[in-house]
């Protein structure tokens, strides 16, 4: 092998080694630091008991209940298969609304209600003007349909 090829090989192997190491690190990092549990797993009782974790999903249409004169809020989160009730007290992100993706951080209570201490909103990669969005509300209907249909399947599709 020519010296240049040797150098290329050395660089390539080093990069590959680090790539694998980084991949494994991030894998572990994701499992340990995110503590992100699927809604279906939460509904099936598969979640860390004595500690905080995150759940993510869509806010079920019509499920948001606010207590008059307080900042307490109660709503349901769905992954379109199962739903989990969530309680929260505090300031909500501006994007929080029914049908919207949310991430809730907190822990599961004895009463099978997720007590959140932080609510974050997710949004998708679509951007459009309000007038355009009005004509596209079919998207919202699709979500609601999925929410209604999915809730029936909870438990049956449990793996």
């Amino acid at each position: 092998m020519k010296p240049r090829q040797q150098r290329m090989l050395a660089v390539g192997l080093a990069a590959l080694g680090i790539a694998i190491a980084a991949g494994l690190t991030l894998r572990a990092f994701q499992d340990n630091m995110m503590f992100f549990v699927e809604v279906s797993d939460v509904a099936a009782g598969k979640y860390p008991k004595e500690r905080n974790f995150r759940i993510g999903g869509l806010v079920v249409g019509g499920s948001v209940q606010r207590d008059e004169g307080s900042i307490d809020i109660r709503f349901e989160v769905t992954d379109t298969a199962c739903t989990v009730p969530v309680t929260y007290s505090g300031v909500l992100p501006d994007l929080f609304r029914e049908g919207q993706g949310v991430v809730a951080h907190g822990r599961m209570g004895e009463d099978k209600v997720f007590a959140a201490d932080k609510i974050m909103a997710k949004h998708d990669e679509d951007y459009m003007a309000p007038e355009v969005a009005d004509s596209l509300s079919k998207h919202q209907q699709d979500i609601q349909q999925a929410v209604a249909k999915g809730a029936v399947e909870c438990g049956t599709s449990d793996s």
Partner: peptide
């Protein structure tokens, strides 16, 4: 901060 409701999330990939 205004959209997601957080300045920073440790652990977000």
């Amino acid at each position: 901060r205004p959209m997601w409701g957080t300045w920073w999330e440790w652990g977000d990939p």
